[in-house]
Design a protein around this nucleic acid. Structure first.
Length: 547
RNA sequence: GCGCCAGUAGCUCAGUUGGAUAGAGCAACAGCCUUCUAAGCUGUAGGUCGGGGGUUCGAUUCCCUCCUGGCGCGCCA
């Protein structure tokens, strides 16, 4: 048992001794101020009412009741309105280091997900243009959520769903066709709602060059397929540049060709929540919490996008994914209730909260203090490629992950690039590089540091114990971020931990101290290097050994 | 009008699921390089946690209400 578990067990035992009845929920937190100790509990305040005692009196009684030395406690004291603060023996704090060294690159991983299959769907951009900054935020978020779930023991599949058959694709094809006609000497007629970016002209040129026999783009199927392939290839390049890989690309068109759309419609009818009205087929989604019923099949006989959406999520369930997480822009939030309602109407045992959603707010790009709204190639929006080329992949990832998904994000290009000295991503990377530098300069193999035979209780300075506590909290930080599906908790954790590492590095020397002290501090430097490196790697950000 | 999300330092944003004196980065001011990277460290200043009620030992956090901003509200996707 770790020191915390021993402490919790002893607290619970003490509470029982004073007459508290089960269940006793004993919560141990890190105090706000490290000067208060290593751990704190509000147990006395929680139990004050049921036990009919004043919180501070109860806290004193709890302290008197427990055997604290067994849990490695040096000082237990009452503070504030009734907190009990615990200061552990130095050896109990420093004793956490060997497990970090031993786990190495796996430190922070757990098996709480029990290898259960979960699909994380993100980006899912239609192949009608280059990826924009919103897709970039989604790529960073989705990839990080997937990684968090992997780290906590889920069997994760990253999935990209794309619409290769709808109205938007026809508009893309018509837009490219218009450019081909223009290149061949005809007038330019881009259709209503068509695409105007420069990339359309580039694709038209490539098509003409590759298809000399069809200078006027009369083979519309071929033009469409060419355009879709070209844009998919470009999106793939962008994602590759961003370091994101998908396990599956799911084509919307396959839902039709495989008969899943028809099957879903039939299943919904069998479920009994459909009705015909005004020549259309409706689903009574209001029976499942929606604010209005939804049309499934329009009076012209075609389906609304909502039907393949349901069919698609049925495939996720059928493919064995007991959790499905969708990362989407909050402009799609109205589909949440709708999709869930559709799945419930099927009555096939899909849980009510399926799928889960991580919705993110829009991204604005700021450069020189002003909003940037256009890119050269795409015309109407800023592309993720623009950002990567500008500030680098690590900074783009970090900046997209720094904030909660549901807060609007202002991406300051100047901060991410020009003022690289004050850049938060470099701050964390630098802390890692400094730890690495100690081993490089000392000519020491970092991976060979095991802590065996080292007097780690020589690590007794207040700021090194504080750093050790932070490092020991890494697995809990990963777990909390994964449970909440909130990657920004990791950037916050990493920044805080990097600060402690920088401070420790600045105040204390590792190399050249008395041999026993140097050996002890090397274990801490190695532990910090492992945690910072693992955290950055988890988020898809490089952890350089030198900068 | 209805629904969802947000409102915290001059700016951009955290706040450990209800805890102690509300934090970070940037911007401002003052210090620190003979020693493992100064891409760093130390200090100062900066706040009606949008307003008002409520719940309780205790609220930035939960509930109600109002104000402001973003996004939705189609037989579009």
């Amino acid at each position: 048992m770790s020191a915390v578990e021993l402490l919790r067990a002893e607290l619970t035992r003490a509470a029982r001794g004073l007459g508290a009845t089960d269940p006793i929920e004993t919560v141990l937190d890190r105090p706000r101020d490290p000067a208060f100790g290593d751990w704190t509990t509000n147990l006395a305040m929680v139990l004050a009412k049921p036990l009919g005692m004043k919180p501070r009196d109860l806290a004193r009684a709890l302290i008197a009741q427990g055997d604290w030395t067994r849990a490695g406690v040096r000082i237990a004291e009452v503070a504030g309105p009734g907190f009990i603060n615990f200061r552990l023996e130095t050896a109990a704090v420093a004793g956490r280091i060997p497990e970090i060294l031993q786990a190495g690159a796996a430190y922070g991983r757990s098996e709480t997900g029990k290898r259960t299959a979960v699909v994380v769907e993100f980006v899912s951009a239609n192949p009608t243009g280059p990826l924009h900054v919103g897709h970039g935020r989604q790529a960073a978020l989705g990839d990080a959520v997937a990684a968090l779930l992997e780290w906590t023991g889920w069997a994760v599949s990253r999935e990209f769903y794309y619409n290769d058959a709808g109205v938007q694709i026809e508009k893309l094809a018509a837009s490219v066709h218009a450019r081909i006609v223009e290149d061949a000497g005809g007038g330019l007629q881009i259709p209503d709602g068509g695409y105007h970016g420069e990339y359309i002209g580039e694709i038209a040129e490539q098509y003409t060059a590759g298809h000399p026999g069809d200078r006027h783009g009369r083979d519309t199927d071929r033009v469409r397929e060419f355009a879709v392939a070209a844009l998919r290839a470009e999106q793939d390049q962008d994602l590759k540049a961003f370091g994101v890989r998908f396990d599956t690309y799911y084509l919307e068109s396959s839902l039709y060709t495989d008969g899943l759309v028809d099957e879903t419609v039939q299943a919904l009818r069998d479920g009994g929540d459909t009705y015909e009205n005004d020549g259309a087929l409706w689903l009574r989604t209001t029976a499942f919490g929606d604010d209005k019923d939804r049309v499934m099949r329009k009076s012209d006989g075609t389906f609304t996008y909502f039907v393949p959406d349901i069919a698609y999520h049925v495939t996720k369930w059928r493919r064995g994914f007991r959790r499905a997480i969708n990362v989407q822009g909050s402009d799609h939030h109205s589909t949440v209730t709708r999709v869930r309602a559709g799945l419930q109407a099927l009555r096939i045992g899909i849980p009510e909260g399926y799928p889960e959603y991580v919705l993110h707010q829009l991204v604005t790009v700021v450069r020189g203090g002003e909003d940037v709204k256009l890119s050269k190639r795409a015309g109407s929006y800023v592309t993720v490629r623009d950002l990567i080329d500008d500030v680098g992949r690590d900074a783009v990832r970090y900046f997209f992950l720094m904030r909660r998904a549901d807060s609007q994000l202002s991406f300051d290009v100047d901060l991410a690039r020009t003022q690289s000295e004050e850049n938060p991503v470099y701050y964390v990377q630098m802390a890692h590089a400094r730890m690495s530098g100690i081993f490089r300069v000392g000519g020491i193999d970092a991976a060979g540091i095991t802590g065996e035979g080292v007097a780690i209780d020589l690590l007794s300075e207040a700021d090194e114990l504080e750093l050790i506590n932070a490092l020991a909290d890494f697995p809990a930080a990963v777990q909390a971020a994964a449970d909440a599906l909130e990657p920004h908790r990791m950037t916050t954790y990493l920044h805080d931990t990097a600060e402690l590492a920088h401070r420790w590095y600045h105040r204390h020397h590792v190399l050249g101290e008395a041999p026993a002290l140097t050996a002890a501090r090397l274990t801490l430097a190695r532990a910090a290097q492992i945690v910072l490196g693992n955290g950055l790697t988890l988020l898809g950000i490089s952890a350089p050994e030198r900068m």
